[in-house]
Amino acid sequence: MEVCSITDHSSESIIEEILKIYSSIKDLEDEEILQDTSDHLKNVYQRLDDLITLPIDYEAAEAILNGHGFDQALDTIIRFIYLYTIRLETEYANSILTSNEPWEMLKNYSFYPNYCQLVRTEYQGAGLKANDTVVFLGSGPLPVTLILMCHQHGLKGIGIEQDEQRAELSRKVVDKLGLSNAIEIIHGNHFQLPLSEGADLIMIAAQAQPKKEIVEQLAKALPAGTKISCRIYEKGLRRLLDRSILVGLPAKLAHEFKECRRIHPLPPVYNTVVFAVRSSAAAPERP
């Protein structure tokens, strides 16, 4: 199986690898990515991880991702990463359900330390306190964020997941961990907001898509003063994971929301967390 061919960090080598990866996955259907049991997709995922962790600076990444007209390739790669991540989370969620020690199984999840630190950052950054309610858009089949928010910080959580089967799987995981009284999972999307229960913080997952559309809907639906947090990737080629950074999300946030804090990642976390408050609604346009 072909491995990552990059032997230097030149733009030419990086672009060549992006296009090779694109060629290897462009014809895959969603179900193939979610269900294929061969090593091929695992190796592609590893190649992508090798690629996005290359130590290149912001300006070099900007030139590569914005300057070569391969939007379709980047969109295809993002779709692959999204679906393969769902696959990994689904597999681990099922492992928790079959375990006699579900909490130990969860703690052995490879990204568990990352989530612990990220959740602590969001809890402190948003000024939350016990019994506050958080809504998490894009909670997925393994809602680790909500699990840790509620278990470690005493919050109440509402997860919104657009895929019905993933929503049901996550409910079973929450129940297995004994957190059904603290966490509710709703099958739906950003058009469900605002909820009648209200929320002290609305969180947008890094994997929540399409992020630009989500932010636009929140700008229409949320009352002034609503707090949101948004996980984004903005370091080096990790920006490849989040096309919203390349298509105007920061400008949209600045126009409709007042950014109040931005916390950059420290290892093992990769996400920058942007905290914002919905500004006063603009006056309707005159006909």
Results as ranks from 00 to 15, higher is better:
178 G>F: 11
141 P>A: 15
97 L>A: 10
142 L>W: 06
182 A>W: 01
122 E>L: 07
133 T>H: 14
140 G>N: 03
185 I>A: 01
168 E>Q: 11
187 H>A: 06
155 L>P: 03
187 H>D: 04
162 Q>P: 05
192 Q>M: 13
101 E>L: 07
169 L>V: 06
113 P>L: 03
126 A>L: 08
181 N>V: 03
97 L>N: 07
146 L>C: 03
103 W>M: 07
106 L>Y: 03
108 N>E: 15
184 E>D: 12
133 T>I: 07
153 H>V: 02
140 G>I: 07
132 D>E: 13
126 A>E: 08
184 E>W: 06
170 S>M: 10
156 K>L: 04
186 I>L: 15
111 F>A: 14
103 W>E: 07
97 L>H: 05
143 P>Q: 00
98 T>Y: 13
103 W>Y: 10
179 L>P: 03
164 E>G: 04
157 G>C: 09
126 A>K: 05
182 A>R: 09
120 R>F: 12
175 D>F: 05
137 L>I: 14
102 P>Q: 12
160 I>W: 00
128 L>I: 10
168 E>A: 10
172 K>S: 14
147 I>Q: 06
131 N>Y: 10
122 E>P: 09
129 K>P: 00
153 H>G: 02
140 G>Y: 03
140 G>E: 00
107 K>L: 03
191 F>S: 13
193 L>C: 11
134 V>F: 05
102 P>M: 09
146 L>Y: 06
113 P>T: 11
123 Y>T: 02
150 C>R: 00
114 N>L: 13
136 F>N: 05
191 F>D: 14
134 V>N: 06
141 P>T: 13
99 S>A: 15
159 G>P: 05
132 D>L: 02
135 V>G: 00
163 D>F: 05
134 V>S: 05
144 V>F: 05
192 Q>D: 11
97 L>T: 09
133 T>W: 02
98 T>I: 15
147 I>K: 04
132 D>Q: 09
135 V>K: 04
129 K>N: 07
166 R>W: 04
131 N>R: 14
158 I>H: 02
107 K>C: 01
190 H>W: 10
100 N>R: 14
147 I>N: 08
180 S>R: 11
164 E>C: 01
118 L>T: 08
118 L>S: 10
155 L>K: 03
126 A>T: 04
120 R>H: 15
182 A>S: 12
109 Y>W: 15
101 E>I: 07
172 K>V: 02
127 G>T: 10
97 L>I: 12
171 R>K: 15
127 G>S: 06
